[in-house]
């Protein structure tokens, strides 16, 4: 029972704050709501038994990305000034399209995924095991993408610095 309650609380948090994050007038609030959504997601990961992912989600998103966001917001936002909203007609069109897409995708997904209710058993994910998989070169092991993403990170840092630094 406790799991259900936690899940539905998280579900409500995520749903409500997702919607608030994309409708709020003030950008700083938007960012805060996003943070809540991300933390809620981290909670879901924990609930599913991926505690490592929980840690990463919090460290990278809450600790990294959100900091950049807030930094950028403070840099570009003039206090007290609300962001203008889109024309109502356009909002309506976007809303209709999004809801239609949601209904369509939901319909397809709901009727086509395997119905699983009970969480299947899973062997415990020890850090050793995760590290082994990360550092391996066989099938279902991830050293190659790990190396490649490090190059992506380097490239993005170089690119971001080049664009952002002053003359």
């Amino acid at each position: 029972m406790a799991e259900q309650i936690i899940f539905y609380v998280l579900a409500v948090i995520i749903t409500v704050f997702s919607i608030l994050a994309v409708t709020s007038k003030q950008i700083i609030r938007s960012a805060t709501y996003l943070l809540f959504v991300l933390l809620g997601t981290a909670g879901l990961y924990l609930l599913l038994g991926f505690s490592y992912l929980f840690a990463v989600q919090i460290a990278v998103y809450a600790g990294g990305i959100m900091v950049i966001f807030i930094f950028a917001i403070l840099l570009t936002n003039r206090p007290g000034e609300n962001v203008k909203s889109e024309l109502p007609i356009r909002r309506l069109v976007a809303l209709v399209t999004s809801v239609a897409g949601l209904a369509f995708c939901g319909h397809i997904i709901y009727w086509n995924v395997k119905k699983v209710i009970q969480l299947p058993l899973m062997e415990e994910l020890t850090p050793q095991k995760l590290g082994h998989i990360m550092m391996g070169t066989d099938k279902y092991q991830y050293l190659l993408p790990f190396e490649m993403i490090s190059i992506l990170l380097l490239a993005c840092i170089v690119g971001a610095i080049m664009v952002a630094r002053r003359r």
Partner: peptide, 20 residues
């Protein structure tokens, strides 16, 4: 930009719906 994204999304959904 957002109009572009809208056309993009609409195209995607349209293709999917037409296929079904």
């Amino acid at each position: 930009l957002q109009q572009y994204a809208y056309v993009f999304l609409f195209g995607t959904l349209l293709i999917a719906v037409l296929l079904f």
